[in-house]
Simulated scan of single mutants.
Amino acid sequence: MKLHKRKFYEIKKLLESKLGDEVISHDENGSEFLEIKKTRFWLSADSSEFTVGYGANHTHFSEDYGNLYDGIIQVFDLLTHRVKTTDFIKGHTVFRTVVEIEYPDSKCISIGETRLLFYPFWKKTKIETSVTDPILCRKEIEMEVNKIIN
């Protein structure tokens, strides 16, 4: 089994042990998906890569890309920190969304941005920001996370 798949299963096992029925997993077209109910967080693994997502934003990680461990860290950062989502709206159309992880030192790191090509550009822009609380407490899973990373 490839390393990214093994790490996916280790994360899945940890989340199921901590969140129980809140974790939803399913297979689709050779890819395995994991979601947490009532959140925008998701994770997938296929034959070549590990994908970490939050809403429509997602990033691909793999041993081949040399960034698999960055992806694992991003998973746990999304789960244990506040996540700030900023929607830019013209009329009734969200034309841009920015997702950031808020760290304790008040520093925000952008993990992704989505944009639409066609939107009513002539309308006034309205900005809506929402903040989602952490899903898990970092201290409660620290030992397990360290085992998965190492």
Results as ranks from 00 to 15, higher is better:
L3H: 02
L3Q: 04
K7N: 08
F8E: 05
F8A: 03
F8I: 06
Y9K: 06
E10W: 02
I11A: 06
L14N: 11
L14D: 06
L15Q: 13
L15K: 15
S17C: 09
K18A: 08
L19Y: 09
G20E: 13
G20V: 02
E22G: 06
I24F: 05
I24T: 11
D27V: 01
D27W: 14
E28V: 06
E28M: 10
E28N: 11
N29R: 12
S31P: 08
E32C: 03
F33V: 02
L34M: 12
L34F: 12
L34K: 02
K37R: 14
T39L: 12
T39I: 11
W42N: 09
L43K: 09
L43R: 10
D46V: 06
E49C: 10
E49A: 11
E49W: 04
F50H: 04
V52C: 11
G55F: 04
N57K: 13
H58F: 13
T59S: 10
H60R: 07
H60V: 13
S62K: 08
S62L: 05
E63K: 00
E63D: 14
E63F: 03
D64G: 02
D64N: 06
Y65E: 07
G66K: 01
N67C: 05
N67Q: 02
D70C: 07
I72R: 08
Q74C: 09
Q74L: 15
V75Q: 00
D77V: 01
L78K: 08
H81E: 08
H81V: 09
T85V: 14
T86S: 07
K90N: 12
G91R: 11
G91Q: 05
V94M: 09
V94G: 05
R96L: 10
R96H: 05
R96T: 08
T97Q: 12
T97W: 01
V98S: 10
V99E: 01
I101W: 02
Y103E: 04
D105T: 05
K107V: 15
K107N: 08
C108I: 03
I109E: 00
I109F: 04
I111W: 00
G112T: 02
F118E: 12
P120L: 07
W122K: 01
W122G: 12
K123S: 11
T125F: 00
I127M: 02
I127K: 04
T129R: 02
T129P: 06
V131Y: 01
D133R: 14
D133L: 13
K139Y: 05
E140T: 12
E140A: 06
V145T: 07
V145P: 03
I149R: 08
